[in-house]
C-alpha cells in the first residue's frame, strides 16, 4: 500500500492555507477489515490526510529544508463516517509558525457535510537530525509533483510557487544516474 492519504492539492497558498482532495474507494485495503462488513474510512487515516496536507503546507514555508513531522493531535472531532464513493476535501490553515514547529487547524468535508475538525502540532526536528533527509530529495519532488503542489501552488502574493533549486538539482542528478544507482563521486 502506498502511503498517500490525499490524492491531490486543489489549493495551496504558501504560508497560509491549503486544500486537498481524497477519493475513497471500495478497492482500498484500509476499508477491508477495519469494521468488517461496514466499509468506512478509519479516523486515524483521516488524521494522516490532515498531516500530509498540513505537513506539506508547513514544510513548504521553508522550502522543505526542515524536517517537519506530525508531533501532536491537540484536538480531533469527527462528525460523519466516510464511505466508499465519498470525496473528502481537507482544508488546513497555519495558525502559528515558529522555528521549532507549527500549529495547524483543519477541517474535512464531504460535499457540504463536516467530517472532522482538528488542531494539530507539527515539529521541526532539531539539529540532532541535521543532514538527515526524511525523504530522498528527488523522490520527494516526484511526490510534490504527483500531488499537484506546483500546479496549484501560489506564493503569498499570488505568483506561481517555485520549486526549490535543491530539489531540482537532486532530480536532475537522479535522472542522469538512473533510478537506483549510487551517487557517482567522480562526477
Amino acid at each position: 500500500m502506498r502511503w498517500f492519504w490525499i490524492d491531490r492539492f486543489v489549493e495551496f497558498e504558501s504560508g497560509r492555507r491549503a486544500a486537498a482532495e481524497k477519493a475513497v474507494t471500495l478497492a482500498e485495503e484500509q476499508l477491508d477489515d477495519y469494521v468488517p462488513g461496514f466499509p468506512v474510512m478509519p479516523a486515524s487515516l483521516i488524521i494522516e490526510g490532515f498531516a500530509q496536507t498540513g505537513g506539506l503546507l508547513v514544510g513548504e514555508c521553508r522550502q522543505f529544508e526542515q524536517r517537519t513531522v506530525l508531533a501532536k493531535v491537540g484536538r480531533a472531532q469527527f462528525f460523519r463516517e466516510v464511505r466508499p464513493g465519498d470525496v473528502m476535501r481537507f482544508e488546513v490553515a497555519i495558525q502559528d509558525l515558529r522555528d521549532d514547529g507549527a500549529i495547524v487547524h483543519g477541517t474535512a468535508r464531504v460535499g457540504d457535510q463536516l467530517v472532522a475538525d482538528v488542531e494539530i502540532v507539527f515539529a521541526h526536528l532539531d539539529d540532532r537530525f541535521e543532514g538527515v533527509d526524511l525523504f530522498f530529495p528527488a523522490d520527494f519532488l516526484t511526490i510534490l509533483r504527483l500531488l499537484g503542489v506546483y500546479d496549484v501552488g501560489r506564493t503569498a502574493d499570488g505568483k506561481p510557487l517555485v520549486i526549490p533549486a535543491r530539489l531540482l538539482a537532486a532530480e536532475a542528478a537522479a535522472n542522469r544516474e538512473g533510478p537506483s544507482s549510487e551517487p557517482d563521486a567522480a562526477r
Binding site: 508531533a71 501532536k72 491537540g74 495558525q95 502559528d96 521549532d100 514547529g101 500549529i103
Partner: peptide
C-alpha cells in the same frame, strides 16, 4: 516537550504577547 509548543502558542494568543523560547 512537544506540548510546550502548543502551550506557548495558546498563551501568546490569549495574552497577545510574544514568547521567545
Amino acid at each position: 516537550s512537544i506540548d510546550f509548543l502548543d502551550i506557548v502558542f495558546r498563551l501568546e494568543k490569549a495574552f497577545g504577547i510574544e514568547i521567545p523560547r
